[in-house]
């Protein structure tokens, strides 16, 4: 690792002012950023640790939504929303491994927007709202490509508000070594429609499979997906799978999610 200063603000306001200083970068749970720093792929002059900001660690339910603080760990989410929003709790409880879930945070995952991360699928599939220290951003506007979001430099994800669907399921095909999704699909059924979000597959990161949403909106069953196939254009191709294989998995994982919910 290159050398850096580590600062530990206790409030969002202090963190925002620490991040305003040019080369500073936010550090969530560090489960992606610390390995990245070890490979010298990042060289921040200052790291602003968000782990000590209590106002970013919370889970609040109100009126059909649940809001989760950006500093809330995956393990905390898995426990806290198990009864309120079981589909999301299940997603959080299967990220990485137990030790990673005790450090990694929802805000860190969404700010990083890894093209194979789990939370972007949960947020986009739920139609969540990303809350920052400056504004609120709809998930449909937030995810803007691989490792790219609508966040400005120094902007902090302080919370995420999820509308709670009637039911939801996250179906994941883990890559056997990294345990990241090779392809994973989050299906959420609301009273007014169905959302289907796909992670791990596209070179542009998480995306909605709108054809499947329309088909499932008309007929929520695996049969409705029978004639659909996702295009392999723009799918990731690497040593773990071809673009065609990933496109095929999108259909399979969507069907599995719907089957779990039926």
């Amino acid at each position: 690792m290159y050398a850096f200063d580590l600062v530990k603000p206790g409030t969002v306001a202090e963190a925002a002012s620490a991040l305003a200083g040019g080369e500073a970068q936010a550090l969530g749970g560090g489960q992606t950023l610390i390995p990245t720093l070890k490979q010298r792929l990042a060289d921040p002059g200052t790291l602003v640790s968000l782990s000590h900001i209590d106002e970013m660690k919370y889970v609040r339910e109100s009126g059909g939504t649940v809001e989760i603080g950006g500093g809330t760990t995956h393990a905390m989410v898995a426990k806290a929303v198990a009864d309120i929003y079981p589909g999301l709790a299940d997603l959080a409880g299967r990220i990485g491994d137990p030790s990673v879930r005790n450090r990694g945070t929802i805000g860190g995952s969404l700010a990083n927007n890894d093209p194979s991360a789990c939370y972007p699928a949960g947020a986009l599939g739920s139609g969540a709202t990303i809350i920052t220290d400056k504004r609120e951003i709809a998930a449909d506007d937030y995810f803007q490509g691989m490792f790219t979001t609508a966040l400005d430099e120094g902007e902090i994800v302080t919370g995420v508000r999820f509308p709670i669907p009637e039911k939801a399921h996250y179906s994941k095909m883990p890559q056997p070594a990294s345990r990241f999704p090779l392809v994973a699909v989050y299906v959420a059924k609301f009273a007014d429609g169905v959302r289907v979000a796909v992670t791990g597959a596209s070179e542009d990161g998480v995306f909605r499979w709108t054809e499947a949403e329309e088909a499932l909106g008309a007929n929520f069953s695996t049969d409705a997906l029978g004639g659909l196939s996702a295009s392999e254009d723009g799918m990731i191709a690497d040593i773990h799978g071809t673009a065609a294989y990933r496109a095929h998995l999108i259909g399979v994982m969507t069907k599995r999610a719907v089957a779990e919910m039926s």
């Binding site: 580590l6 560090g30 782990s51 491994d97 450090r103 990294s178």
Partner: peptide, 25 residues
């Protein structure tokens, strides 16, 4: 690289990978 878990310790009663956490935190 936070894969193997040989460095697992407990911090405030929770298992973490001590190779993927800064001492100052």
């Amino acid at each position: 690289t936070s894969q193997c878990g040989a460095c697992t310790v407990h911090v405030n009663g929770e298992a973490v990978k001590s190779c993927t956490m800064f001492a100052a935190d």
